[in-house]
């Protein structure tokens, strides 16, 4: 099939961006979305034009690098999948596809579809860890953890830090990411010890990065490739108020 791509092109952080049309020819249904872009980029490069810059790495939905807003929806709208797991069989011949980067003040553009998500790293640096040094830790089985707690913590820990929640939110809020990170640790006894300090400093860091606030619209949950639940935000709110 042949497709028209309306792609956001932006030379660098400080230059203005605009949509540019590209044509994707002979797209096969088995291609992934990113492989379709690879093919377009090959053609561009052969013509000596600048390929479309986009982030991707593992291409199996776990590293969280890929980050495209496809036809207005981060990761393209297939439930529980990242952009790299979206395949072209979900599109039809002649379709026009709009491709944009994550848009948020806290995710400044780098080039084309690539943005800088280091704000997430800084939020983690502010307290998203258990303060243990290497060595001297008790035996792993010294402290039993109820299976339900461990499973719930794992649900939160499944977050791949892609930032789709921010991209989808009308307020560009990072609440789902921060909540998943806070709750992953707060639900486990190892992380409870410093839970208060953690939630306070991570929320402060989140606000300082310039993310918006939560309006509980549920868009974040809808686009999350790991289908992380809004309930974690509620839990974080409670922990924050208690702290």
């Amino acid at each position: 099939m042949n497709l028209t791509l309306k792609v956001w092109r932006q030379k660098s952080a400080n230059s203005p961006g605009r949509f540019q049309d590209h044509t994707a020819r002979n797209v096969m249904p088995d291609m992934s979305f990113l492989e379709m872009l690879d093919v377009v980029n090959e053609e561009l490069a052969e013509r000596g034009e600048e390929p479309i810059a986009f982030d991707s790495d593992c291409r199996e939905g776990i590293c969280g690098a890929c980050s495209l807003v496809i036809n207005g929806i981060p990761h393209g709208g297939n439930a529980g999948t990242a952009t790299c797991q979206l395949h072209m069989r979900h599109f039809h011949d002649g379709q026009t596809i709009t491709i944009e980067p994550w848009r948020a003040r806290a995710f400044p553009p780098v080039k084309d579809l690539v943005v800088d998500r280091s704000a997430f790293d800084r939020i983690i640096q502010s307290g998203g860890f258990v303060s243990v040094n290497t060595g001297g830790t008790p035996d792993a089985n010294a402290l039993p953890i109820p299976k339900v707690d461990q499973e719930l913590a794992m649900d939160a820990a499944a977050c791949i830090g892609c930032g789709a929640c921010v991209a989808a939110c009308k307020n560009a809020s990072a609440m789902l990411f921060v909540a998943a990170k806070v709750q992953h640790l707060a639900l486990l006894p190892q992380g409870k010890v410093e839970a208060n300090r953690r939630v306070l400093s991570m929320v402060e860091a989140m606000d300082a990065e310039g993310f918006g606030a939560c309006s509980v619209t549920g868009s974040c949950e809808a686009v999350c490739p790991k289908q992380i639940s809004l309930d974690f935000i509620s839990r974080m709110n409670r922990d924050y108020l208690k702290a």
Binding site: K6, W8, F19, V69, N71, G72, I73, G77, T98, E100, R103, A168, K170, T217, G218, S219, E221, A222, V223
Partner: peptide
């Protein structure tokens, strides 16, 4: 966004 949709909202 040029094309803004609001999944789930």
């Amino acid at each position: 966004y040029g094309d803004a949709k609001h999944p789930g909202a």
